[in-house]
Design a protein around this nucleic acid. Sequence first.
RNA 1: CGGGGUGUGGCGCAGUUGGUAGCGCGCUACGUUCGGGACGUAGAGGCCGCCCGUUCGAGUCGGGUCACCCCGACCA
Length: 491
Amino acid sequence: MAKEIVNREDNYSLWYNNLVVKADLAENSAVRGCMVIKPYGYAIWEKMQAQLDKMFKDSGHVNAYFPLFIPKSFLSKEAEHVDGFAKECAVVTHHRLMSNPDGPGVVVDPDAKLEEELIVRPTSETIIWNTYRNWIKSYRDLPLLVNQWANVVRWEMRTRLFLRTAEFLWQEGHTAHSTKSEAIEETERMVHIYEKFAREYMAMPVMVGRKSQSERFAGALDTLCIEALMQDGKALQAGTSHFLGQNFAKAFDVQYTNKEGKLDYVWATSWGVSTRLMGALIMSHSDNNGLVLPPKLAPIHVVMVPIYKSQEDRSKILEQMNEIKEKLQKRGLSVKIDDRDNLRSGFKFAEWELKGVPVRIAIGPKDMEKGTVEIARRDTLTKEFISMEGVEELIPDLLDEIQENIYDKALKFREKNTYVVDSYDDFKSKIEEGGFLLCHWDGTAETEEKIKAETKATIRFIPIDDSYKEEGKCIYTGKPSGRRVFFARAY
RNA sequence: CGGGGUGUGGCGCAGUUGGUAGCGCGCUACGUUCGGGACGUAGAGGCCGCCCGUUCGAGUCGGGUCACCCCGACCA
């Protein structure tokens, strides 16, 4: 299955390291597991950002910014929360350096020790809720719907490019509501916005579900998620939305006066997606020729490659290309003419395929004679000659078609790799092939833990869709179960 | 944090019994090429991850350390 199409081992460097979207891991020894996102890769992130930001604002949210440093005492105010993050925190202890009295270089000035250590935010619930205490006094201040675009640091034991870097970029929404039901609605609204973004923009089909208790966010009462299946058969959590109950309001004493004039704690949610989405994008669509970018997120929609022998031909063709480029730009497309004179066209074809540009237009002397252009699609790797006249009218439709085709392909892949499994023996053999396994589970953390220990598979999510409700028996214990859940090995 | 592996020009690698480094790609210049990753000629580019040790002499041997990759435990 998956491994025949794309072998992750082989393509890892092709997709990430050799490439464009590539992130060099920083060579400085002090910076562990961080990434440098090159301009082309960052352009993809900017596109994602712009679209998500629009979707947040369209649903009533606003942006704000909170400090990078969190006083250590803040983190310990919510017991479960600190348990979840304590093991992966970067801690600031001093605020000054001095020249080394015993030799060259600089050392930390021992006199500059901070009275209270600062934690580099692994997530911002604590510092934000500490601020919300002063922002929320009345029911008229609610709901408070704030999002932050930021970087966070989690000192993970093991890092992996894009999927789990020590520092990553993300957005984190933190909302406050006067009622429990309103907060739950918000939690659901946001996970569906993520689902829509993944489907419509990333061309990535995702399942919406609920995390089991053991996979829940530290400090949350409920965690909803979007979960995608990568081409190597492993699942990837691509975004989460948490219902935090009144945990943080109580920990930071955020109370408001309700319509009846009584004090009450507010209800909270938080939700986020990160640069992990770029890993998801790459691993969902790429093939052995490199990246395949969905047109809606591609920094360059159309690349134009001239083919020529003489400088005369070259300038004629480039002139023609500029005309087409202008027409395409008027339709809102991003177009690149690859006019580099030192490279052959074949090399350029391969290079732009590696970068995942959805459409390539090549024009040579023969085209100039016949009035045609060669159009190549990145998703299917097919080429055809069409009339130069009116090409600008066809390209937008073609891009839409590519966007759709990439989605369909990913959806078919997931459907083909989702299995209904009713016995534990079957489970153990199927899990080796990868994919989602849809099984009955008795609902206990013990069973989940045992299955994980024996097979490395975890419950990715409990579907919230009622169509998965059905009476059955747990594949492990045989105890009764009211619905099927999705198991997979995950990143 | 445990197990395994790797650190040598920008990238990918070689380097024998220890004797101050080589190949391919890329880069620069010139020429010939140009419809799917061109070729020739001439060049430039390296405190061999870092520290300590053994030795007359260390890329090579020993110890330590840091980083990265893979497999676990942990996690977005």
